[in-house]
Amino acid sequence: MIGLKDSDKKNYNTRRRTLLYLIQKYLNDYGYPDIATTLKSEALLNDYEVCDNIDIDIIFLEYCSYQQLKFELPEEWKQFSDMIMRTTLSKNSKIHFKDIIGNDEAITTIKEAVILPLENPLLFENELKPWKSLLLYGPPGCGKTLIAKALCSEIHDYMSFFNITSSVIISKWRGDSEKILNTLFIIARNMAPSVIFFDEIECLTNERNTIHEHESSHRLKSEFLTLLDGIHDSNDNIFVLANTNVPWLIDSAFLRRFEKKILIKLPTIDERQALFHYYLEDSKKWPNHIMEEIKKLSNGFTGDEIRISYVIEKKDVCVNSQLLIDILKSMKPNSYSQYEKHCQWQEEKGSMDRKN
């Protein structure tokens, strides 16, 4: 607990042991004596007599007090820490990397940056360091948020995952936005290893304009830049993942701090076929000329648009290829023209494919 006074350190350790005693007593009372014995042995707990009215509410209140000291936050920031803790995703979304079709480069890079250092820490003992930040960009519906959900599922047992939107950070009160952002990184540092996911990050990092920009917006961006510098300059096990549909709106200072910028591409012709087979099991039995027409009609569609065509067809009791073809003919790819702009931006500022 760097930065705490000696008296606070003692109070912190006392709170921690008190919490362990309460949990051990609760486990004993509610039919888990083996687990309680293991906890007592591992935590080196003594045979203290604890009151007999321990319940979940008492344990929770003690836990809140313990966390307040652990995060080294001023009392006035407690409301911010409570709000940040609510963004922590602890549930498994049941979507894993193996369920995602395409975008292998982005998935491989995320695995190397987040999962590999935990599974093989010896690889990063010397000067070699894993990526600390990654920006995913591309048209809406290509799978940027889906990849983040899959990462959360892959790591939910041993890492903290914070799902942050602009509504969490932005406050109408002067100075509170910077405090919330600071609180987020303090909590992520104390709960490390951690992943902070910023959804639609352009809302927080749009290009700075010294003439028309409000002072509070400028202060928030300056604080954000400082915090991003901090994760790169330290050994804190924090990974920042962000996505955006409009990378050209992000300020160049923020782009520089994202070590990898990866385009989430539209599905290829083979990936589109795999998507139809994934959503429609019967499509695997359709003749080749039917599938060729379906793949041709779905050119330029995002994965989400292919999913929507499946949802529309699913309302019909009888699933058949002709109905799907009619639906695809009535749909237009909304993101295709914007995708060309993303490809151009990739040539100028993005991270190139590994094969290049």
Rank of each mutant, 00 (worst) to 15 (best):
Q344T: 11
N245G: 04
D99N: 08
A274I: 02
E313F: 01
Y32N: 10
V311L: 13
E207H: 01
K314I: 13
S133I: 03
I2N: 12
T226V: 12
E154C: 00
R272H: 05
V317D: 13
I84F: 00
A188Y: 09
D270K: 08
S217T: 09
Y279I: 13
P287A: 08
H277L: 10
N28Y: 06
M83A: 11
A242R: 02
Y30S: 03
G350C: 02
N53P: 00
T109V: 15
T18C: 13
S330D: 10
L61R: 12
S234M: 11
Y26N: 06
L73M: 07
F301S: 03
P117I: 06
D229I: 09
N245S: 15
L39P: 08
D29R: 03
Q273Y: 15
K355F: 14
E127R: 07
K25P: 04
W131I: 13
S234L: 08
L22W: 00
I155K: 00
K179P: 04
H96Q: 10
A274Y: 00
S41I: 05
I56E: 07
K296T: 11
E202D: 15
S222K: 06
S133Y: 03
N92I: 04
L249G: 05
D229F: 10
S337G: 02
A113L: 02
L323K: 11
L89V: 14
L228A: 06
H214S: 14
F60G: 13
F301P: 03
C142R: 02
N190S: 12
Y310F: 13
C51P: 07
N245M: 03
Q67Y: 15
D236G: 02
I84A: 02
L184A: 09
W173I: 12
M191A: 01
H277P: 05
S252D: 12
G138C: 04
I290Y: 07
L136R: 06
Q344N: 13
D233V: 11
Y336E: 12
F60Y: 14
F97C: 03
W345E: 10
Q273S: 14
Y48V: 06
E200T: 06
E223R: 02
I262L: 14
G350M: 00
L136P: 06
Y137Q: 13
E76W: 10
P333S: 10
V319K: 13
N182W: 04
A242S: 13
E215F: 03
E340N: 02
L328G: 01
D82F: 15
P247F: 08
L20N: 04
L4R: 08
L20Y: 02
H96V: 14
S41P: 09
S321H: 05
H218R: 14
I250C: 00
R354H: 11
E281N: 10
F162W: 09
E75R: 01
K10C: 11
H156W: 12
E271G: 03
T145W: 11
